[in-house]
Design a binder for these strands. Structure first.
Length: 798
RNA sequence: GCUGAUGUGGCGAAAUUGGUAUACGCACUGCACUCAAAAUGCAGCGGGAAACCAUGUGGGUUCGAGUCCCACCAUCAGCACCA
């Protein structure tokens, strides 16, 4: 019988929809739960690309297997629907971005259904839906009231072209990620979320979750914890002091100058004492014009200016030291001031060389005439530290002394910055606050959601004002007789995605963001799948929100995702990233039409390891299709299926059940498929296939190729979906060979094999091994013989 | 520069974690079926005539290394004047 993918796939998709096959009753606590989640997509105008189904198929396989294993499975899908393309469409056409977004969502939904994913669409959420963002605003409100969402004046990355602020991860090489426009630094009042407050928790909790080690490392680096000390330096002839953060307090005796960030406020404070204040100001203004990248890109050549008329006192040597302003010191890390130890820090060394500042070596080693010495060694020129040989000991002693004198203390710094939580854009969640003349107030709950007003024109104004400024009726309000203004910037895309996994559990609740009992039952997410590119964005933000909600007693676990896996990228057949400009894009619609959804699923799972990037291959997809043809041909031939046992297949069947089950659990889908192929190859050689085996293999294959297996299942006389049939079991004893081929080695090289019974005793093996290799052993001096049971027999000769 | 990952046939990739390297598939070759082709089924398929040689390169540990250790090379990713 011919395998007609089109007919079969349509038929079963219709059946699943009509029977609500995948609908989950979240209140059914009688079965163990399993929550398996995909990172929800941004519904772009291009529709699904072939990369999406890779991860979605993987989670679908797990969802389908877990259902058959008796779990109550939550497997939802939704939309990260706020975003720039919809906004740009609105600017261009003057239409509301919502229409554009909804059209795209329709396309995505059709495509996902066409691929046979077992999502429970009754749980669908969309971040741009006011019923959803009501709760995004509500969570923001809690953060604001708890002081974690703050309105502060800060330097930001400003993109003139886009008319908005960008976060660090939206900037690539000093240009905006989208469009590649220049980015400059500028001071602005900004909404930020105090994610540094959670730095330590986010760091510590990494040890509690089953995530790829590399992703944890990316987050650790991003959080960037460094332990050191804050040390106070007094400014000569004043009562003022400057505090620096250093990770090397042990080198304090070698500090020969201080460097301030050009924006450091102390400069303006002592403007009248600084004799060259104009030069310093000029330097500062020039630095502000540079984007962060330019500032860091010119790494080789240090620039700076001496602050004349002001000196600083080294607290341990009491020598007066010069102060410089230089843009290699950042205002937003540490204290914006550093003590410079040129002998033991390369940057300070370069600076000192350029400005002719003395270099004092305090750790023995290296060659200070050539470069800074950053290694370990004996302390020298260091007063009370002299003679100490380990860094750790020197640091401890120095900190003790500083603490006794009250001029320093142990301190920890994090690299992670405040999360900038506002964009000068229209298509995002409105920030639910009112600005009064003298204070800011969050909206009361009953005014949520604060819905986006409609506009005639969605572009930002010339001055870079947010589009919402145009909605004057909406912006200007009066409350209790006082005039107030609404916030006109909106939340960033990462707002709605920071908690959507909670909403899936109870998507229609209008009393709370999700029922506590349901959250207690369903959280955390058991398996979360998506791309690595979110490592320092979404995956950090959502962890922070979840930890915060946990602290408020609103969710049951600190960490939202107990297990995380990243799918690799599917590259074009030329090994390059798929893109329109390279002309190597594969459209899933075409593939499904020509080969079928099951073929696409099988192929993408068979390509290789889920986590690796791998190139698309046209012959590969054909191969997958051929296997499905072969599979269908074999199992649809009912005349071969019977209740007669066939011992030729017994072992392979039990092996297959075992391997496929464990491979699925470990997300090794490629080897699971190869095992099913091995069984099919074996079955082709047989005249009769026991019904039990045929049905078992069909069930095993169902998670990967759901349509073809439903069809075959129904051909065997079953009237119900295969979805909730029980998962096949295997008998361990039947997977074991009673006779095995044992390799015989001489000096570790295989010279032959013998057939032995399983667990044969050493003497028997030795005898047949010697017999097998008589020729090679003749006249040789046997030094040693090694027998590893059922693995190998090795004879060492000289 | 720092951090992390990867490197196996013509190609996509396996290898129970130290025990017969190249499973499974693609491509290719041959045979069967066919007037023929396609499709399908079956068989072969790292190199070498062989001894042997092959898992990026060079060392090491071990009876035995794709797997462990050291050094290096290449590719990819993240961070990047973070004090």
């Amino acid at each position: 019988m011919e395998y007609n993918h089109n007919e079969i796939e349509k038929k079963w998709q219709k059946y699943w929809k009509e029977n609500e096959t995948f609908k989950t009753d979240v209140w059914d606590f009688s079965k163990p739960k399993y929550y398996v989640l995909d990172m929800f997509p941004y519904p772009s105008g291009q529709g699904l690309h072939v990369g999406h189904p890779e991860g979605y198929t993987a989670t679908d396989i797990i969802a389908r297997m877990k259902r058959m294993q008796g779990y109550n499975v939550l497997h939802p899908m939704g939309w990260d629907a706020f975003g720039l393309p919809a906004e740009q469409y609105a600017i261009k056409t003057g239409n509301h971005p919502n229409g554009f977004t909804e059209r795209n969502i329709k396309t995505f939904t059709r495509q996902l259904n066409m691929l046979g994913f077992s999502y429970d669409w009754s749980k669908e959420v969309s971040t741009s839906d006011p019923k959803y963002y009501k709760w995004t605003q509500w969570i923001f409100k809690q953060l604001f009231e708890d002081g974690l969402a703050k309105y502060v004046d800060m330097p930001v990355n400003w993109c003139e072209e886009l008319g908005t602020v960008l976060s660090n991860d939206e900037i690539i090489n000093g240009k905006s990620e989208r469009g590649g426009y220049p980015v400059v630094r500028k001071n602005l009042k900004q909404w930020v979320i105090d994610i540094p407050k959670y730095a330590e928790r986010l760091l510590e909790n990494l040890d509690k979750i089953d995530w790829p080690e590399s992703t944890k490392e990316i987050q650790r680096n991003w959080i960037g914890k460094s332990v050191g000390a804050n040390v106070d330096f007094s400014i000569a002839d004043t009562d003022d002091k400057l505090t620096v953060f250093t990770t090397r307090p042990d080198t304090l005796f070698g500090a020969t100058f201080m460097v301030l960030s050009p924006e450091h406020p102390i400069i303006e404070k002592y403007a009248d004492r600084i004799t060259n204040i104009e030069d310093v100001r000029k330097y500062r203004d020039a630095a502000a014009l540079k984007s962060e990248l330019e500032r860091t890109d010119l790494a080789k050549e240090k620039t700076g200016v001496r602050i004349e008329g002001l000196e600083i006192i080294n607290p341990v040597t009491n020598s007066p030291l010069p102060i410089y302003a230089a843009d290699y010191v950042m205002m937003n890390y540490g204290t914006g001031a550093i003590m410079a130890v040129p002998a033991h820090d390369q940057r300070d060394y370069d600076f000192a060389k350029k400005f002719n500042i003395p270099i004092i070596q305090v750790i023995d080693g290296g060659d200070i005439s050539k470069e800074a010495y950053t290694g370990d060694g004996k302390m020298i020129n260091s007063g009370f530290l002299n003679g100490i040989t380990t860094k750790k000991e020197a640091i401890e002693k120095m900190i003790n002394v500083l603490e006794e004198k009250g001029i320093g203390k142990k301190s920890i710094n994090y690299r992670i910055r405040d999360w900038i939580f506002a964009r000068q854009r229209y298509w995002g969640e409105p920030v639910p606050v009112l600005h009064f003349d003298d204070h800011i107030e969050s909206l009361p709950d009953n005014e949520l959601p604060l819905v986006l007003p409609e506009l005639d024109n969605y572009s930002p104004s010339k001055k870079g004002e947010a589009p919402l400024e145009r909605a004057t009726n909406w912006v200007n309000v009066e409350k209790n007789g006082k005039k107030a203004k609404r916030e006109t910037s909106t939340m960033p895309g990462s707002a709605g995605s920071s908690w959507y996994f909670l909403r899936y559990i109870d998507p229609n609740n209008d009393k709370v963001f999700a029922d506590k009992k349901l959250l207690d039952h369903w959280m955390p997410v058991d398996l979360y799948l998506g791309g690595v590119e979110h490592a320092t964005g979404h995956l950090l933000y959502s962890r922070m929100w979840n930890n915060y909600l946990f602290d408020k007693g609103l969710v049951p676990t600190e960490e939202p995702f107990s297990k995380l896996v990243h799918q690799g990228m599917i590259l074009g057949s030329n090994g390059e990233k798929m893109s329109k400009s390279r002309g190597n894009v594969i459209n899933p619609d075409d593939i499904v039409k020509n080969y079928g959804a099951d073929s696409l699923r099988v192929y993408e799972m068979f390509m290789g390891s889920l986590e690796d990037s791998k190139p698309w291959s046209d012959t590969g997809i054909e191969g997958a299709r051929k296997f499905l043809d072969r599979f269908y041909r074999l199992f649809s031939d009912i005349s071969k299926i019977s209740d007669t046992p066939n011992f030729n297949l017994e072992k392979e069947y039990h092996k297959t059940v075992k391997k496929v089950t464990t491979d699925y659990e470990n997300l090794n889908f490629n080897t699971a498929i190869s095992q099913i192929m091995i069984f099919v190859n074996a079955a082709y050689k047989e005249k009769n296939i026991p019904r039990e085996y045929a049905e078992g293999i069909i069930k095993l294959f169902n998670p990967i190729a759901p349509h073809i297996t439903e069809e075959l299942w129904s051909m065997y006389g079953h009237t119900d979906t295969i979805t909730y049939e029980s998962w096949p079991t295997f008998d361990e004893s039947k997977t074991i060979d009673e006779e095995i081929e044992l390799p015989i080695q001489i000096n570790g090289k295989v010279k032959g094999t013998i057939v032995i019974s399983l667990d044969a005793d050493e003497q028997t093996v030795k005898d047949s091994a010697h017999k097998e290799l008589t020729n090679l052993l003749e006249g040789k001096n046997i030094i040693k013989e090694i027998y590893v049971k059922n693995k190998i027999y090795n004879i060492v000769i000289r």
